[in-house]
């Protein structure tokens, strides 16, 4: 990818990373109550792994942004529920509910949206500063 040279690169990448995080939260919450016939088939919560991306001259200008390195599934195990009337139940009458903790996802969602807003706030502040600087002396 191209080098990060200014504040707009920093904020846009950080915001898209937070957006990816919000997407995974949405997917997890959407699948929270889904039921599968085996532990392997059951949905497992996904989560982005964030990684710092430094600019080429980060030691001089101190610019660094964040990227999503990969999306991993969490180690949480699906819940085994006794539900013999369910069409997906195995011969013993068990089904597996998706391994998603809704409360955890809600907290994650709040944090991601706050950090998205923070980045946006930084950009709008710095943009107005830039506009004032451009208009200097008028």
């Amino acid at each position: 990818m191209s080098d990060i040279s200014n504040i707009f690169d920093v904020a846009s990448r950080a915001m898209s990373a937070q957006m990816t995080r919000l997407n995974t939260v949405a997917s997890n919450i959407a699948n929270a109550r889904s039921i599968a016939g085996s532990a392997d088939e059951a949905y497992k919560a996904i989560k982005p792994m964030f990684e710092t991306e430094y600019a080429k001259h980060a030691s001089e200008n101190g610019i660094a942004t964040v990227n999503v390195r990969e999306i991993v599934t969490t180690g949480r195990e699906p819940t085994k529920i006794y539900m013999p009337e369910h069409t997906k139940a195995d011969e013993e009458g068990f089904v597996w509910q998706a391994a998603v903790d809704v409360e955890e996802e809600m907290v994650e969602m709040l944090e991601a949206s706050r950090q998205y807003q923070n980045n946006l706030e930084v950009v709008s502040t710095l943009r107005s500063l830039m506009m004032r600087t451009v208009n200097m002396g008028r």
């Binding site: 200014n6 504040i7 920093v10 904020a11 990448r13 950080a14 990373a17 937070q18 995080r21 964030f50 990684e51 710092t52 200008n61 101190g62 610019i63 660094a64 942004t65 964040v66 944090e111 991601a112 950090q115 923070n118 980045n119 930084v122 710095l126 500063l129």
Partner: peptide, 24 residues
């Protein structure tokens, strides 16, 4: 302006594990 860039980088990395905040 340089310090603004550095602080913005810190804010951008507020959710990255093991990131160390920097300043001048």
């Amino acid at each position: 302006s340089k310090r603004n860039d550095i602080l913005a980088s810190n804010i951008a990395n507020s959710a990255t594990p093991h990131f160390k905040a920097r300043d001048i």
